[in-house]
Design a protein around this nucleic acid. Structure first.
Length: 661
DNA sequence: TTTAGGG
DNA sequence: CCCTAAA
């Protein structure tokens, strides 16, 4: 029945058990990667949420880097596979060398993956209208005039802006203005260091000069609230009102695996972290309250979505031909009498966030129709060591934006340049009526006030013994009292977790070939990654929109971005499956995709499934990047072979399991 | 956590 | 890719 040869073969490619340790860390890396991506996506989603609907078309940056990743692999694996009679010993050593070769090659091949990653990341981002940002170099603008160092949120932003420009629908504006304070005196803190010192915080009216000028090795991000005419970096005398950390928890986990899952995580992280963690002795409260945090987060998740829907709705109903005059928009149909607008510059003067455009249209009776075309993101301040990399700067900005957008925004109403604070007044009473000139009406997006949040940390027993290390903070505008309280409560944990989070971030840019820096960062901090979210939960009350949440990802756990397999990846997969067989996807993953953080074993399994399918259909029916027929042939061959093996295994197992054991 | 399959 | 039952 079964030739012995075959039996040998089945063990031919059996992978020598790898150290579980390295494996786990690798998997952790994967988790990090995912978190990072999620996090980044989050920010963009939020941006999209805020400023959505300005552009109907999406940008679909071409992501053709895949092709470049094709490399010649000399098919040694195949040879191995075909040689079923090779002695086991030789087999193993051969495999070892094979693995090395493979690794080397794959490292190279992963470069394109990296590019692909960033590409896709951007391609997936919705066009978030004119939200953009600029970072000003403090050195350059110390005189008070922000001299831009031309920092933008992302390439997409500019694209979008261009697009918008063409359409002439919205003002091209720098919604989020960021100020970059550079460190002057710190040594190469290495990324980890600087990352560990990242501070993100919001400030309202006056931020203590010291906060900004001191700790040059820190990254500070402040978002400005209203009533502050920020003049460059000249006098950043503002007060931190509150802060909000960014979490790096994988949304998917949050969404899907609940309490029990977190329990597991806690266990694991405890194991790794407790020893050197400042959380010693606080584990229990921390984790117990984390559940609450998640719960809360989930319950709050739909808020931004609703906002978005409302926004879309109003936008849709009125989306016809508005013309722009300077910073304002008018409806050609209704003229200024019935449409209103507000100067974004004027708004931004008073408010870090402001509506860029809205219009009121007369509708039937005493209804006021408003159209808000976009909101500005609150102004942000960033401080980052000059030794930090551009990449880390980018990420820092991203975090800042994420923090601000994610930590909950409230809408402010501005009338005649004044804030309307009385929520109970009617529009009529306030002077907003359909037959009034509404050009003075404006809206702002402001960091959510923290009235109800201050007790958060105390409540959750999150206060941690102070550490002497710099205390990174993430947060944003809120009341001074609150921020202070928060700082005390969370700074330490933030220090710990933020570091981890950033370490994670760093890795993102090195999908397959981690640089020494990020590697060390990762290794150093990954163990505390599980705790990154801890500070966040203290924020739960504060957050209307949890930092990590994605506007869309909220309702339904959002799909991961699509990442078509490149030919190189397919080849790697085929190669691994030829050797390992189907049904050992974890091993396949470890062997061939250990460095591709975004490929899970499920992905590989699915890909194999589709490959088999692809190989069976006619070339005309195939879509996407064409897979070389040679590979498809190998797919079929391997699939047939391993299916057979599986069947035989089953038979054997059932008939006489003793033989195998 | 992995595997296996359906969606 | 997602979701999940099973293992």
């Amino acid at each position: 029945m079964v030739p012995q040869k075959r039996l040998d073969y089945s063990f031919n490619g059996y992978q020598v058990p790898t150290k579980r340790r390295a494996t786990r860390s690798a998997r952790r890396n994967a988790t990090f990667q995912r978190r990072l991506e999620d996090n980044q996506m989050c920010a963009f989603d939020l941006l999209a949420t805020v400023a959505d609907n300005l552009l109907q078309e999406k940008h679909n940056p071409s992501t053709s880097s895949d092709r470049s990743s094709q490399k010649n692999r000399d098919g040694f694996v195949k040879e191995e596979c075909l040689d079923a009679n090779k002695p086991l010993k030789a087999e193993l050593s051969d495999e070892a060398s094979c693995d090395r070769r493979y690794q080397n090659e794959f490292v190279k091949e992963n470069k394109p993956f990296k590019a692909e990653l960033s590409d896709e990341g951007s391609s997936d981002r919705k066009c978030f209208s004119n939200i953009s940002s600029q970072v000003y170099n403090q050195k350059g603008c110390s005189s008070g005039c922000p001299e831009s160092s031309g920092f933008k949120l992302d390439g997409d932003v500019s694209k979008i802006k261009d697009e918008l420009h063409k359409l002439g629908k919205v003002p091209i504006d720098t919604g989020t203005e960021l100020c970059c304070f550079e460190a002057l005196d710190e040594k190469p803190p290495a990324l980890i260091n600087s990352c560990g010192n990242v501070k993100l915080s919001g400030y309202d009216d006056s931020m203590p000069q010291s906060s900004l000028s001191k700790g040059c090795d820190n990254v500070l991000v402040y978002s400005r609230d209203d009533d502050e005419n920020f003049s460059g970096c000249a006098h950043p005398s503002t007060k931190i009102k509150s802060f909000r950390p960014i979490t790096f928890i994988d949304d998917r986990k949050i969404n899907k695996r609940l309490a029990s899952k977190y329990h597991e995580v806690a266990q694991e992280s405890k194991h790794d972290t407790l020893s050197n963690s400042v959380l010693d002795g606080n584990m229990k409260p921390v984790y117990s309250s984390r559940k609450n945090y998640y719960k809360s987060q989930r319950s709050q998740m739909n808020i931004p979505f609703k906002k978005r829907k409302i926004f879309n709705c109003s936008s849709d109903t009125n989306s016809n031909g508005y013309i722009r005059r300077g910073d304002t928009y008018y409806s050609p149909k209704n003229d200024t009498n019935q449409s209103f607008s507000c100067s974004s510059s004027g708004m931004s003067k008073d408010h870090g966030t402001s509506s860029l455009d809205h219009s009121a249209l007369r509708s039937g009776d005493s209804h006021v129709k408003l159209r808000i075309k976009s909101f500005r993101v609150p102004e942000l301040f960033i401080e980052i060591p000059e030794t930090a990399t551009i990449g880390s700067l980018r990420r820092t900005v991203m975090e800042a934006v994420t923090a601000v957008l994610g930590s909950g925004l409230r809408v402010g109403v501005i009338l005649h340049g004044k804030k309307v604070r009385d929520d109970n007044k009617t529009l009529l009473q306030t002077g907003i009526s359909h037959d009034n000139h509404l050009d003075a009406l404006g809206f702002t997006l402001e960091p959510n006030s923290s009235q109800n949040k201050s007790p958060a940390c105390a409540t959750d027993s999150l206060c941690v013994p102070s550490a002497d290390m710099p205390q990174p903070l993430i947060g944003y505008t809120s009341s001074p009292a609150v921020i202070h309280q928060r700082i005390q409560c969370f700074s330490n944990m933030l220090a710990e977790h933020q570091i981890a989070g950033l370490g994670n971030l760093v890795e993102s840019d090195h999908d397959s070939a981690p640089s020494p820096i990020n590697t060390s960062g990762e290794k150093k901090f990954k163990d505390s990654k599980e705790l990154i979210n801890v500070p966040e939960m203290g924020m739960e009350a504060l957050a209307v929109i949890p930092v990590h949440q994605k506007s869309k990802r909220t309702e339904i756990a959002q799909r991961r971005i699509r990442r078509p397999f490149s030919v190189a990846e397919v080849e790697a997969l085929v190669q691994a499956v030829e050797k390992l067989g189907t049904g050992r996807w974890r091993d396949v993953k470890l062997r061939a995709f250990d460095n591709a953080k975004h490929r899970t074993y499920v992905d590989l399994k699915d890909k194999w499934k589709t490959l088999v399918h692809t190989a069976r259909i006619s070339p005309q029916q195939r879509r996407g990047e064409p897979v070389p027929q040679e590979l498809l042939d190998r797919v079929l061959t391997a699939h047939a072979y391993w299916s057979q093996q599986q069947t035989k295994q089953h038979l054997r197992h059932h008939s006489k399991p003793c033989l195998l054991l």
